[in-house]
Write a protein that binds this DNA or RNA. Structure first.
Lengths: 227, 227
DNA sequence: GGCAGCTAACATGCTAGCATGTCGCGCACT
DNA sequence: AGTGCGCGACATGCTAGCATGTTAGCTGCC
């Protein structure tokens, strides 16, 4: 059993903490795709019983992060370009609908929040704080989604994106990408400020397709990674 | 405990059958919104233990069909116009993205399937078979979603729509609505045949907003239904 | 030497009972 | 009479052990 971070640092019921621990390990590939994931071992490692583990695995199965084969075993899902494409499609659908709505309905206060986030992103780029920038990036997108007024939308978008996020670990960092990302965010904000839904959709679509394009190139170059 | 249909007729594990039984009862309002849903009673009624019931309730909670309050109780979700709007937004986002994609990529074989479905719908309208028509309606939409090639899309769309579907039980049948629905389907298919993504989006949007519009009128007339 | 069948180990799914925290009712007090 | 407090009943969450079905390896046979 690979090293599994302890439950500390996660909140809520045991099942929820087990879920968080396992999900993180799957997403950062410390649990290898295709590996068997024995419930008994997880129980022993984390020091909990099998019910919370079962519930956590059920949730992960509903996100297609693990495959549960009845009476046979539970396996970490393999990287799948199919899943990546589907996840990207879903997030794109949600986020395009969101920017379209927000372009027509954003309040001044909301625009101010977005501008502030952009200023923060600029500072992080100047400081070359890549980790911080990606956090601000995620927050920027979540803001837009939450401005629709739909509470569960940000979470759904995150869930849709998990397979893309996992596959992204295989990409090497590309110098200058953060700067381009910042520029794309500027274009989205500009379209929102102009209250132009079509431009907002276009800018968002362009932005979201960057990662997937790079992944498509990767799968072409090294198809064995997506067995 | 209201009458709960037996597990027979559902396939898969016990948990899955319990899930199906409960979901059906919640959706057709035979489990009253706001009612308490005791695990123990469900176990006794269905003759199963608490693990499968717990798993089923966890899934229902993730769809916001029940509220689980730790150490307090489980409650059938109340009807909520918020949830209806969010569900409608989600399905619209997914289905607009789907028709846009399909308009550009549909094969002739797929168009033939859709035309065949429309012919079936016409026959059902002529025979005034409303139930059959709604089944064909659902199938028509599922076809379009599946033509994107994304396997889980139809299921996600169904899940998104559950709150709308539940609230729809409150609407009285409206004479002539099936005819209008058929006409709207014709418009969607026409746009797909013309390979016109913009028109397809427009026709789909118009179509999907019909139910929500009627629900908005209902909540205005009888707000107490959505406590 | 290769293949088929069997057996044994072991995976998950389910059942039953214990620990923990909450809510509501009743009683005493103000 | 109204209010605050305390206790009891009971809800879910968790733990531990049993039933069921699969898989892999070994053995015997061809």
């Amino acid at each position: 059993m690979p090293i599994l971070r302890s439950l500390d640092g996660y909140a809520g019921s045991l099942a929820q903490r087990v879920y968080g621990t396992l999900k993180e390990a799957i997403l950062d590939l410390s649990l290898k795709p295709g590996a068997i994931l024995r419930k008994g071992e997880v129980c022993a490692t984390l020091g909990v019983s099998r019910s919370p583990v079962s519930e956590a695995l059920a949730r992960l199965a509903s996100e297609a992060l693990v495959d549960v084969v009845p009476q046979a075993g539970t396996f970490v899902a393999r990287l799948s370009m199919e899943e990546v494409r589907e996840g990207a499609f879903l997030r794109e659908a949600l986020e395009l609908a969101a920017v379209e709505l927000v372009a027509g309905a954003a309040t001044e206060a909301q625009l101010i929040q977005l501008r502030r986030s952009l200023r923060l992103q600029e500072a992080l780029v100047e400081d070359a704080d890549v980790g911080g920038f990606y956090a601000a990036d995620a927050q920027f997108h979540e803001m837009i989604l939450s401005f629709t007024g739909h509470r569960r939308l940000p979470g759904l978008s995150r869930t849709a994106w998990v397979h893309v996020d996992r596959a992204r670990r295989l990409l090497l960092p590309e110098p200058g990408r953060v700067g381009e990302t910042l520029e794309e965010h500027r274009a989205i904000l500009a379209a929102l400020e102009a209250r132009d839904p079509v431009a907002a959709r276009g800018a968002t679509r362009t932005h979201l397709r960057q990662v997937v394009t790079r992944l498509e190139r990767l799968v072409e170059a090294r198809p064995e990674l997506f067995a």
